[in-house]
Simulated assay, not measured.
Amino acid sequence: MRPEISVLDIQGQFRVYTEFYRAEAAEKTIVMVNGSLATTASFAQTVRNLHPQFNVVLYDQPYAGKSKAHNLHEKPLTKEMEGQILLELIDHFAAEHVMSFSWGGAATLVALAHRPRRIEKAVISSFSPVINAHMRDYLERGVKHLGARDRFEVGNLVNDTIGKHLPSLFKRFNYRHVSSLDLHEYDQMHFHISEVLTLNESNYLSTASNINVPVMFMNGEWDEYTAAQDARLFGQCVQKSTFSTIQSTGHFLDMEHKAACRDSRNAVLDFLKTDQPGSQPSRHRLHQPQEQHAFAL
């Protein structure tokens, strides 16, 4: 499964590395949005879950992965800038769906709030509008270690908190990746966390109130940092919202164990394929995600 690779010019400001996994039988295309400090490699399992049912688009933010060699990194990107990049990619690839992981949810909310005409459905995973006590502790320690550019502490922090339910092999990969980033990536993350710490839930809910397409918010049962019950606050403002809790898994969902991978896949495919002509809900739900449709307020 080899992707079509290209580096796209975004409004003359950024150059973005993309991977397009084409499936000849697929009728829809989905764009995946990374979390902070992540790259296209982070979605390897998710691509296997979605392809060939969908064409899948991966990309690296201008400051990360295979995009960073093509950009100058003169100043950090805001979530609004990242949202605009996502809108450009949606148009370029004529995508009908978008799916984000972790802090990629912030840029996705910004993009969806612009009501891109092509988008039919979205999945926002491991994200909530609330900076709860667990997340605040993680972010405040992150600001300290990133500000000091302490590679050892940054690498360990990720594994000891949001990554604590990952298998040991993935923890080693996480540590190598996070502790070996370029300094401008640490500066980007420091900027991002500092910005997040000044926000409250009303900022995210206000942005989300402009969304007019069905959105599934998917969280892990064991995730203390972007907790499932906190994500349900989006039901107050996203009229067509659905909530899925993946049992016995934490922040990294499909990467943590086989059952979580299966249940994440089933939840996403059921949501994206339901109500499309000729489609039927998946029969596989051995650990049924807890779903409900929120009332609009």
Rank of each mutant, 00 (worst) to 15 (best):
P129K: 13
N203H: 14
R232F: 04
H190K: 15
L272R: 11
N49H: 00
L109D: 07
I124T: 02
R151N: 08
E96A: 12
F191I: 00
T18R: 01
Q236W: 08
S194A: 03
L169K: 05
V110T: 03
Q276F: 13
Q236K: 12
H97R: 12
H70L: 08
A25M: 02
A23L: 01
V178L: 10
S194W: 04
E256Y: 09
P116V: 06
A25H: 00
D182C: 13
S67Q: 06
V110N: 14
V178K: 15
H287F: 15
M218T: 08
M189T: 13
Q239L: 01
G155T: 08
I193H: 02
L286V: 04
V196W: 09
S102Q: 01
A106L: 14
I131K: 08
F234S: 04
A259T: 10
R48V: 02
G65Y: 00
A95G: 13
Y186G: 15
D150L: 01
I162Q: 06
Q84L: 00
G163C: 04
E140F: 03
Y138H: 11
L89D: 09
K171G: 04
F252P: 11
A94K: 13
Q247I: 12
D182P: 00
A64R: 06
D275Y: 01
G250S: 14
F271M: 07
V56I: 02
V238S: 05
T249A: 10
R2A: 15
L197I: 05
F271A: 01
V130N: 08
M218F: 04
Q247P: 08
K144I: 03
R141A: 04
F14W: 05
G163H: 04
V154R: 03
N49P: 00
G278W: 00
P3H: 08
P277Y: 14
V158M: 14
L72W: 07
L146K: 01
L297M: 03
V196G: 12
E291P: 03
L58F: 01
Q84W: 10
L87V: 02
P62M: 06
G12I: 07
L8K: 13
G235P: 01
L146E: 06
C237Q: 14
P289D: 05
H257Y: 15
N156V: 00
I211P: 15
D223G: 12
T108H: 02
R141L: 04
Q239N: 02
S36Q: 13
A44G: 14
L157D: 09
E224T: 14
F101V: 05
L183A: 06
P76F: 11
V56G: 08
D150R: 00
M218N: 11
G65N: 05
D160K: 13
M81L: 14
Y204P: 02
I124Y: 00
Q290M: 11
K28E: 10
E291H: 09
N55M: 08
K171T: 02
D160H: 07
F271Y: 11
V123D: 07
Y138D: 15
L199Q: 12
V123T: 01
E201H: 04
S67T: 03
F243I: 02
A231N: 07
D275S: 14
R2F: 11
I124S: 00
Q45E: 08
T198G: 06
A44I: 01
H257I: 06
V47M: 10
